[in-house]
């Protein structure tokens, strides 16, 4: 699946400020098609801000983002979603009042075209679409092994399962680029292993390109093809896990530099 020559998303000289606070300064990197790309860095390094820029929630003051060869300056989040970028969130952002099934169905929102009248009367495309997309959604539900909680309101699910439902919702959109914001935060070892398995099989079986933020270094080094390190909003290093492990700047940033 790896075709390293093919660049899916390219970030160039991105700078983002909130008032006087510089969240990101001149960050550039490429995400290649089919790879698992990790963004790491200490707390407050600007990792989540970076994801928010990629999917259009924040608008960087400077720099460009090129997705599938198309450069974009300002775009709304739903436009990014329409282009094939989905994501999960650091703090779970599921629709609590809806069931697992309904949540995952929202992932297919952009692929449905039935008119209002067809939906209101549940005829024609309105009915056909519901059933066709339900089949797709059931595939995702099987893939992530959440069949048994199909009709449970997600507000009642334990944390680990909610994370999985959120991944299901993102996958239901059949994205080309999947952004995962700390998919394993707050999980126990077993849940983490499950999640790693799902991330890997998403990448291998569905061929989805994945960009993820994660604090667990073991997970990052095992999963990812390439890693970029951010610190105080700047890019510190970029490379394969092995290169990163040996990089003195990265070690300094994580462990601190002794000034004696």
């Amino acid at each position: 699946m790896n075709r390293p020559e093919h660049i899916l998303l390219s970030v160039k000289d991105i700078s983002l400020r909130f008032g006087g606070v510089r969240a990101l300064t001149d960050v550039s990197f490429d995400i290649r098609e089919g790879e698992i790309f990790a963004i790491i860095g200490p707390n407050g390094a600007g990792k989540s801000s970076m994801l928010n820029c990629i999917n259009g929630f924040y608008h960087p003051q400077e720099g460009t983002i090129t997705f599938k060869g198309e450069e974009r300056r300002q775009m709304r989040p739903h436009e990014a979603a329409a282009q094939g970028i989905s994501r999960t969130f650091q703090n779970i952002a599921l629709f609590k009042g809806m069931t697992t099934l309904e949540n995952v169905m929202t992932g297919r929102m952009l692929k449905m075209q039935a008119s209002f009248v067809e939906q209101a009367l549940y005829i024609g495309r309105g009915k056909r679409e519901e059933i066709a997309h339900r089949e797709k959604v059931e595939e995702v539900i099987d893939f992530l092994e959440i069949q048994s909680i199909r009709k449970t309101p997600v507000g009642r699910l334990p944390y680990g399962l909610q994370k999985r439902v959120e991944l299901a919702r993102a996958l239901a959109a059949e994205p080309e680029l999947l952004l995962l914001d700390e998919p394993m935060a707050g999980m126990n070892v077993e849940e983490k292993e499950d999640m790693c398995r799902f991330v890997l099989s998403t990448n291998h079986e569905l061929g989805t390109t994945i960009a993820l933020i994660e604090h667990d270094m073991g997970v990052v080094m095992d999963l990812s093809d390439r890693v970029v390190v951010l610190d105080y909003g700047r890019k510190l290093a970029e490379g394969t896990p092995d290169e990163i492990r040996g990089n003195q700047d990265v070690i300094d940033a994580y462990l601190g530099v002794s000034h004696d």
């Binding site: 999917n55 929630f57 709304r76 989040p77 739903h78 990014a80 979603a81 329409a82 989905s86 994501r87 969130f89 952002a93 599921l94 629709f95 609590k96 009042g97 809806m98 929202t106 992932g107 929102m109 952009l110 919702r169 993102a170 959109a173």
Partner: peptide, 12 residues
């Protein structure tokens, strides 16, 4: 209703 920001991010 449940989370408007997330809704926008998934394309609503």
């Amino acid at each position: 209703r449940d989370m408007d920001i997330a809704a926008e991010l998934i394309g609503i």
